[in-house]
Simulated scan of single mutants.
Amino acid sequence: MQVATQDKALHGKVALVTGAGKNIGRGIALALARDGAAIVVNGRADKAAVDAVVGEIEALGGKAVAAMGDVSDPAVPPRLAAEAAKAFGGVDILVSNAGLRRQTSFLDMSFEEWREIMSVALDGAFLLGKAIIPQMVARGGGAFVALSGVSTHVGTSNRCHVSASKSGLEGLMRALAIELAPHKVTCNALAPGAIDTARGAAAGPRPVGDRLIPLKRFGTVDEIAAMVRLLVGPEGTFITGQTIHVNGGEFLT
């Protein structure tokens, strides 16, 4: 089945998705590709995983390129922007999903670990925005979505650095929503709850069980990807400056 056809809602759009080699990032990249967007698939180190996602998109009839790099490195986001411009002419949709999971108690946490976690999620979003938003402005507008998380709202032991980075992301999106509105760039955060994903060893055990979720189940990657798709598509152009919670009722705004 071909995806990049004229009748797709995102046909002609270009999306850069960071942390897109697996789990939520992969799901978002595939969802946007199915609706017609060309995808710049970013990952930090696992080139095989990123290439596999590119292959999946191409198998669907879509367009995609791999673009490796650590988004917390100030030299990387400008390079990603240049690669996107070379491949597809520029970016309309930026999904800042890259982040690191760690579980370390505050009393045992080093400043180096604190900075490492903060740099990928928060500094990375800042650097990506600086590199990509000028392309959006030149293309007449766009959408910027940053992935936050429920733990910053409910409080979670051993993850103060993760919670702080996600709180910062939400503040960044609110501020940019106002500043970039004249350029027709929407900016939103999306806060997933407990999602059924593969967790690396460094992430530790899940900080919440489904007993604490009113819907009594974990969410799916596809449910997160569908909300991102709404925010960046034509149906989402009047939504900006928001934190959208997809958590099965674990946290109520």
Score class of each variant (00 low, 15 high):
residue 70 D to P: 00
residue 72 S to H: 05
residue 72 S to L: 03
residue 73 D to C: 10
residue 73 D to Y: 10
residue 74 P to T: 06
residue 75 A to S: 15
residue 77 P to Q: 00
residue 77 P to D: 00
residue 78 P to E: 05
residue 78 P to R: 07
residue 82 A to E: 14
residue 83 E to P: 02
residue 83 E to G: 01
residue 84 A to D: 06
residue 86 K to M: 11
residue 86 K to H: 12
residue 86 K to G: 13
residue 87 A to L: 01
residue 89 G to S: 04
residue 90 G to A: 04
residue 90 G to N: 04
residue 92 D to V: 10
residue 93 I to C: 01
residue 93 I to T: 04
residue 93 I to D: 04
residue 95 V to P: 02
residue 96 S to C: 15
residue 97 N to Q: 09
residue 98 A to V: 09
residue 99 G to D: 05
residue 101 R to Y: 13
residue 102 R to N: 01
residue 103 Q to N: 02
residue 103 Q to W: 00
residue 103 Q to R: 03
residue 103 Q to S: 00
residue 104 T to M: 13
residue 104 T to A: 12
residue 105 S to Q: 12
residue 105 S to K: 13
residue 107 L to C: 01
residue 108 D to H: 06
residue 108 D to M: 02
residue 110 S to C: 05
residue 110 S to Q: 03
residue 112 E to N: 06
residue 112 E to V: 07
residue 113 E to P: 02
residue 117 I to F: 02
residue 118 M to G: 04
residue 120 V to D: 05
residue 122 L to K: 11
residue 122 L to A: 11
residue 124 G to V: 09
residue 125 A to C: 07
residue 126 F to I: 11
residue 126 F to S: 07
residue 126 F to N: 09
residue 127 L to C: 06
residue 128 L to H: 06
residue 128 L to C: 09
residue 130 K to P: 07
residue 130 K to H: 12
residue 130 K to C: 08
residue 132 I to F: 06
residue 133 I to W: 07
residue 133 I to Q: 10
residue 134 P to D: 15
residue 135 Q to A: 09
residue 138 A to T: 00
residue 138 A to C: 01
residue 140 G to C: 11
residue 142 G to K: 00
residue 143 A to D: 08
residue 143 A to I: 08
residue 144 F to S: 03
residue 144 F to G: 06
residue 145 V to D: 04
residue 145 V to A: 05
residue 145 V to C: 03
residue 145 V to P: 02
residue 145 V to L: 06
residue 146 A to I: 14
residue 146 A to G: 15
residue 147 L to D: 03
residue 147 L to H: 00
residue 147 L to C: 00
residue 148 S to T: 06
residue 148 S to D: 03
residue 150 V to H: 01
residue 151 S to Q: 10
residue 151 S to Y: 04
residue 152 T to H: 15
residue 154 V to C: 05
residue 155 G to K: 01
residue 157 S to Y: 12
residue 158 N to Y: 03
residue 158 N to F: 00
residue 159 R to V: 13
residue 159 R to K: 14
residue 160 C to V: 15
residue 162 V to R: 01
residue 165 S to E: 07
residue 166 K to G: 12
residue 166 K to E: 14
residue 168 G to C: 02
residue 169 L to G: 05
residue 169 L to I: 05
residue 172 L to G: 14
residue 175 A to G: 12
residue 176 L to I: 12
residue 176 L to Q: 14
residue 177 A to Y: 14
residue 178 I to C: 10
residue 179 E to I: 06
residue 179 E to L: 06
residue 179 E to W: 09
residue 181 A to K: 14
residue 181 A to N: 14
residue 182 P to F: 15
residue 183 H to T: 12
residue 184 K to H: 10
residue 184 K to T: 08
residue 186 T to I: 14
residue 186 T to C: 14
residue 187 C to K: 09
residue 189 A to Q: 10
residue 189 A to D: 09
residue 192 P to Y: 02
residue 192 P to N: 01
residue 193 G to I: 00
